[in-house]
Amino acid sequence: MAVDLDRCTGCAACVTACHAENNISTVGDDEASRGRAKHWIRVERYWEGEFPDVRLTFRPVMCQQCNNAPCEPVCPTYASHHTADGLNAQVYNRCIGTRYCANACPYNVRFFDFFNPSWDKPLQLQLNPDVSLREVGVMEKCTFCVQRIKSVQIQAKAEQRPVRDGEIQPACAQACPSRALVFGDLDDPESEVARLSRSPRGSMLLEDLGTRPNVTYLTRLEA
């Protein structure tokens, strides 16, 4: 994925889109005040300077799908593991809740279910049947909307053709009004996302940790 910070307006549509797509439960005010709200994607803000010379930069942060993911080796059960597609997958059923991965992830994008997620009836009708519900005591995080990736891959396979660039749209990218989020196949040098990742504006978060993230941030330009 590529995130163009020059396009991102900080509107947080991606945050809600991810809640809607991935059956992320809201935790309510008490739990939120304990910092236990679950936002697989968040919009970080960086204030610089003092009035009147203030500057504020937004940065949406989701799981960086590291190629060398620190969350993977520490997981004793392979609940956090790497897929052939290069995703960092999270198998909720396999997770026993050691929370080790959350300590290991330098981007703080893993969220623990401190209680059984619940929906006040009939809010459960909005749940996406393609995404499994988590139970208490497991870790959850951005999956790059793997259910959407799979469904497009299956469709393409049925039609005996390769997946087209831009055909897979994670929920956050789909919702983003200013098209700041671009998803695609980095292995295909012709894809939009590969083109953006080669941009001189590109960089990765905490690159020096050696996590080799799969998300490239295109820096916001100064006038």
Partner: peptide
């Protein structure tokens, strides 16, 4: 301290029916 202590035995190397071993890198 496990989130799901009833599954603690998944930490132990035992020959499960699906031959899933714990992650020896952890």
């Amino acid at each position: 301290h496990l989130g799901r202590p009833w599954l603690a035995f998944w930490l132990f190397p035992y020959p499960s029916e699906r031959l899933i071993w714990p992650n020896f890198r952890s």
